[in-house]
């Protein structure tokens, strides 16, 4: 058994007095896809943000690739990222709900900026790599276009290429299809399926249950900052052990009115 790529150990995250993550522990092995589901406010996005080192944690530890990534501290901080271990901060790639592409840069420059500045690649090398990545997400003909000229689905695929350009060991997806028009969801999910098939380790927060069922190796159901159920997709969708999981899935099915969308 190899050591897990991600270890989250007893993580507590609070905003002022509100506990957003309450002693979360989990581990993800290399090549695994873990899908996190749960109602809004359950802490699932915060969990990803802590893994991406965007948020400090108050207790617990996060290890990525065996190395300490963040360590909890209760001390009031002058530096909001004070307890985040610095260095190699690009082993985690993250894709956001609102894409967050750099609007003043072309698609190509969006992808090459970090490799050039952080990895020290020269322009030719970075662009050659970026063009490969853009092919992979189906945007090879959009490299000189500015983000505002792209559809939401195209922007999100460009954001995936941008994250991949740093060759992360883990990719985090934070509700990446929630802001998309329904007909654009499929193309982004397809890109993510492709990544999963190629062995990328992924943590995916999503409401796309079809994707979760097909692609996830494990599914976590979170509610009120805690992991309520952690199981295989078959088990969690067909025979959820917890009443809260069942209630959540029923509400979700009701809302979707039975019509499945996306890939």
């Amino acid at each position: 058994m190899t050591e897990p790529l991600i270890v989250v150990d007893g993580v507590v995250k609070r905003y002022a007095v509100e506990t957003v993550l309450d002693r979360i522990s989990l581990s993800v092995s290399a090549g695994q896809v873990m899908v996190v589901i749960g109602p809004s406010g359950s802490g699932k996005s915060t969990l990803l943000r802590c893994l991406a080192r965007l948020e400090p944690i108050q207790r617990g530890h996060i290890f990525i690739g065996g190395a300490l990534s963040a360590k909890g501290t209760e001390e009031p901080e002058s530096d909001p990222r004070g307890n985040i271990v610095r260095g190699s901060s690009h082993d985690v790639g993250m894709v956001f709900q609102s894409y967050n592409l750099f609007p003043h840069l072309s698609v190509l420059d969006n992808v090459t900026l970090a490799p050039r500045r952080v990895l020290g690649m020269d322009r030719a090398e970075a662009e050659a790599m970026a063009i490969q990545l853009l092919k992979r997400v189906g945007l090879e003909d959009k490299q000189d276009v500015f983000p505002s000229r792209l559809s939401g689905g195209q922007q999100q695929r460009a954001a995936i290429a941008r994250a991949l350009a740093m060759t992360p060991r883990v990719m985090l997806f934070d509700e990446v299809t929630s802001a998309l028009d329904p007909e654009l969801v499929g193309e982004v999910l397809k890109t993510m399926r492709g990544l999963a098939e190629q062995g990328m380790t992924m943590l995916v927060v999503t409401h796309e249950m079809g994707f979760a069922r097909d692609v996830a190796d494990e599914v976590i159901f979170m509610d009120k900052g805690a992991i309520v159920e952690h199981s295989s997709p078959e088990r969690i969708f067909d025979q959820p052990a917890e009443a809260r999981t069942r209630a959540f899935l029923e509400r979700l099915l009701e809302r979707e009115g039975g019509k499945r969308r996306g890939a």
Partner: peptide, 15 residues
Amino acid sequence: TQWQAAQVLGLGFWD
């Protein structure tokens, strides 16, 4: 979110 996107890519404050 622009700061956050840059940070996750590993870009430092000045970059």
